[in-house]
Simulated scan of single mutants.
Amino acid sequence: MTPDPHHEHRLRCVADRIINAARAAGRPPPRLLAVSKTRDAAEVAALAALRRALGEDRPGFGENYVQEAAGKIEALGDTGIEWHLIGHLQSNKARHAAELFDWVQTVDRPKLVAALAQWRDPARPLDVLVQVNVDGEAGKHGCRPDNIPALAEAIAGEPALRLRGLMAIPTPHSDPEQRRPAFSRMRALFDALAADHPRIDTLSMGMSDDLEQAIAEGATLVRVGTALFGPRPPKD
């Protein structure tokens, strides 16, 4: 497949933004998760090839919907992609998610912990993040900050699951600087959790328009879609 020059340019721009933000903050560069919702398998394969050419052994891609991801995962087969579920997961789809994904970033309730553990092979534990509703938004997915310790303990107690850290999507603001306090609170929550679970290593926050602010506050993984793939195609 011939690389798309637009994809290559966007990838290099995002990589430069990540490196520059990390350097300015005096932090190691975070991992990049490409958000591939609504993108087809060919686009994913092309971007994965570009990322491997730039030195990534196992590029990560994030999907919002289990059914949509299943078609891409089946189409691409064993191509060395690390698949993350970053959308809300209903308990009745936990079996499919546990079988398909390498990571689930949106665990926010005990029922989901038990459902994922039931269907995952303990020989290859599922990497899990606790999703936090850091701004306390009504109707938004994610656990309350004060529920993190109990949920983390439940995950850590399941041999089929591996607690890796926290994930959040702060309240959107037109000015990315207004999201910085939420990112700072997430870093404090992560540090508090690490005191009891020192092996955690992932703080997933920051997207195309606010990755610099997230990195400055301690993100170890940023989720980028539009800045990598370009604007989403219009709906029919």
Rank of each mutant, 00 (worst) to 15 (best):
V35G: 04
S36C: 10
T38E: 13
R39C: 10
A41H: 09
A42Y: 03
A42N: 04
V44D: 06
V44K: 02
V44L: 15
L47A: 03
A49W: 07
A49I: 02
A49F: 02
R51S: 12
R51P: 03
R52P: 02
R52T: 05
A53Y: 01
D57S: 14
P59F: 12
P59L: 11
F61M: 05
F61N: 07
G62Y: 15
E63I: 01
E63L: 03
N64C: 06
N64M: 01
N64S: 15
Y65G: 00
V66M: 07
Q67T: 04
Q67N: 09
A70P: 02
K72C: 12
I73R: 13
E74D: 13
E74L: 11
E74W: 01
A75P: 01
A75M: 05
L76D: 10
L76N: 07
G77W: 10
D78N: 15
T79C: 14
T79W: 03
T79Y: 00
G80S: 08
G80Y: 13
I81G: 11
I81K: 13
I81E: 14
I81F: 13
E82Q: 12
E82K: 08
L85H: 14
L85P: 07
L85Q: 13
I86W: 14
G87M: 10
G87P: 08
L89N: 08
Q90L: 02
S91F: 00
S91H: 07
N92I: 04
N92W: 09
N92T: 03
K93W: 03
A94E: 06
R95E: 14
H96N: 10
A97T: 07
A97D: 04
A98P: 02
A98R: 02
A98C: 07
A98W: 14
L100M: 11
D102T: 05
W103F: 14
V104N: 02
Q105D: 13
Q105L: 03
Q105H: 15
T106G: 00
T106K: 06
V107T: 07
V107M: 06
D108I: 01
R109L: 04
P110C: 03
L112G: 10
L112S: 06
A114R: 15
A115E: 15
L116Q: 08
A117G: 15
A117C: 10
D121S: 14
R124H: 14
R124V: 12
D127F: 00
D127E: 15
L129W: 09
L129R: 06
V130N: 08
V130T: 06
V134D: 12
D135T: 07
D135E: 08
G136Y: 03
G136N: 08
G136H: 05
G136K: 05
E137D: 13
E137K: 04
E137V: 11
E137I: 08
E137G: 02
G139F: 01
K140P: 10
H141N: 14
C143D: 01
C143L: 03
R144C: 10
R144V: 06
R144L: 15
R144P: 01
P145G: 11
N147F: 00
I148F: 00
P149F: 00
P149R: 05
L151P: 06
A154E: 15
I155M: 11
I155Q: 12
A156N: 11
G157A: 05
G157Y: 06
G157C: 05
G157K: 10
E158S: 10
A160N: 13
A160H: 14
L161G: 06
L161R: 13
L161T: 06
R164T: 05
G165R: 03
G165W: 02
G165K: 02
L166A: 10
L166G: 05
